[in-house]
Design a protein around this nucleic acid. Structure first.
Lengths: 210, 210
DNA sequence: ACGACTCTTGACCATTTGATCAAGAATTAA
DNA sequence: TTAATTCTTGATCAAATGGTCAAGAGTCGT
């Protein structure tokens, strides 16, 4: 009878602590340099561990990457999931855009990590895209289509509306350098929120022009 | 007196031909794998040259990268430059969105190359961003602001409208894998164009609702 | 045909980097 | 305290990769 679990099932205090350190550091490094651009040494240095020690917790570089990537996927689904068919469409969309922008400004590295992954053909998250993500979009598109047929919102293409919300909101993280360069200053989160929300919901055209 | 030019000034037939081959191959490889992810060998193989031969035309990997990157920057400015203050705003914006989407579908690799560069902090194009790009955006923002003050379009934030057009249009190239996965099929360019244009110009809200 | 120049390549080098391993240090349950 | 287990690391390796070089092949104007 072994003194400890024969098959490891519970994490040590040190283990949880170091794994968290590693994933935090890995997010920063991977999002800044991409998968190939990042080195295990960089990550190890950033979290104050030696390279062999880091590889004691994650056998391969790719394991670190998939671990940190998976941690962000959940974050991605949550806001869209919250879209409520029974509440006011404009309120719901406003809240969705707001939540996405909050994420963008609070966790730009997470957004960049995901963007990099997709940009390079989604080699690690293809199943996520054609599985849970597609399902969720399909479901919520139905909700939006309902709003349209009830005359509560204009006749938009739901999938493309969702793409638009994704791209515009994430733009402020993924293309943050460009935004800052063009504006000449870091954008103000609140201003961005009103500008983006107003634009997506209200459009450009003067609609009441007689 | 030398038989040929002492300082090389004119390109050989073979030279122009091979440089073009290289840049085409480099665009594909860099856009697919990023700067660090791409290898000189990959590019050489793709264009049917040996690695040393390729390095005969471009001394360093970085030289290939900057060359192919520069070739795309001009492409980027043109459509926005064409925005005409004296014509109808809606027509002009429609044309701009249309031109951007044409680029997206015709040259997705160019879009991805640029996206990757910005995503990683724009190490090679920072001067372009704070120089010509910023100037152009500032100038065209004035145009848009004029349209607003003349009541020809809604009161939008010009810079953020431009960001929105950029992000939404480029999304179909940069996040193409995701778009295709979610839709279950390659998107139809014409459909995307009407959906995106209608959304950005008309918004989501039913404006005439009494 | 000839000589000068351009183009091409096999072999090679130095560095980077992901990964291993054996041995020692620290931790933990009894 | 003790012994099993977990944690840590210096040294090291093999592969990948950017880049070099000398020598030969091809091209071109005359």
């Amino acid at each position: 009878m072994p003194k400890r679990q024969a098959t490891k099932v519970q994490k040590t205090r040190i283990q949880s602590h170091n794994e968290a350190l590693i994933l935090d550091a890995a997010l920063e490094v991977f999002s800044a340099y991409g998968y190939r651009g990042a080195t295990v040494d960089q990550i190890a240095t950033k979290c104050g561990l030696s390279k062999p020690n880091l590889l004691y917790y994650f056998k391969r570089k790719e394991d670190i990457y998939t671990a940190v990537l998976e941690r962000t996927l959940a974050l991605w689904l949550a806001p869209l999931q919250a879209l409520d068919p029974d509440k006011d469409p404009i309120d719901e969309l406003t809240r969705y855009i707001s939540a996405k922008l909050d994420l963008t400004f609070a966790r730009p590295e997470a957004s960049k990590l995901f963007a990099n992954e997709i940009l390079h053909g989604a080699p690690h998250v293809a199943p996520f895209l054609i599985g849970p993500l597609k399902e969720l979009v399909t479901a919520k598109s139905k909700v939006i289509r309902n709003w349209v047929s009830q005359g509560k919102i204009r006749d938009v293409e739901p999938e493309h509306l969702i793409f638009a919300i994704w791209s515009v909101t994430q733009h402020y993280a993924d293309f943050g350098v460009q935004v800052e360069a063009v504006l000449g200053t870091k954008p103000n989160a609140a201003k961005v929120k009103t500008a983006v929300t107003d634009l997506l919901l209200g459009g450009v055209k003067v609609q009441n022009a007689k």
